[in-house]
Amino acid sequence: SPTVSMAELDHLAHIISKSHLETCQHLREELQQMNWQNLLQDEVESYQSKPREVMWQLCAVKITEAIQYVVEFAKRIDGFMDLCQNDQIVLLKAGSLEVVFIRMCRVFDSQNNTVYFDGKFAGPDAFKALGCDDLITSVFDFAKSMCLLHLTEEELALFSAFVLFSADRSWLQEKLQVEKMQQRTHLALQHILQKNQREDGVLNKLRCKVSALRSLCNRHTEKLSAFRAIYPDVIRTHFPPLYKELFG
């Protein structure tokens, strides 16, 4: 765009990257020092033998914790706080879980197909008690495909912001303003990818990830509805209030 200079794109990339690094649940240094220890077989079995509702509650708590960091990420991006509060809420309701899924690749071990969960690295089998194997498999596949792109933290940050500023979410009041932020974020991402001498295909691959993320979130909503039909009281009394607010 002729209206955005390279310096502005660098500045935007810097702000978004800084926000991302400040609000990552696990710092990069922490990850490097972390002993990427897998769950032992009896620990896997212990998760598998939990009652369905207990495992759902545990995952809801973990998701909610991760989402709180995403809210903080959004708040530190100037353009986000300039939006009206309705739109801030709309974007977070629709996009915060998507950003959690993106961030998941930072704590994902591709070789073992395990993800950092509750202190150790867990494979899909540890989540059996949830009763949604297909969704879990898709989430792991998504994380694996994100890892294959080998994005830098800055690229990851910009892609997260791009997804957060989705201008096609329902109920936005100032759609144009969101669109403008999304375009700028897209340009910044493109600019940084070029600067990092990434091949052209990466941006296209990331665009494809947007629909994959939507599908994952829709399926999470479906699974939650099915769970709610059987355990309405568990959600009401034991699930984190923020989780209920976002997905209720």
Binding site: Q68, V71, E72, K75, R76, Q85, Q88, I89, L92, K93, P241, L242, E245, L246
Partner: peptide
């Protein structure tokens, strides 16, 4: 606002 009380609060809180 009432429906999204917590989200509203999180957005209002100054960044920590």
């Amino acid at each position: 606002k009432e429906k999204h009380k917590i989200l509203h609060q999180l957005l209002q809180n100054s960044t920590s």
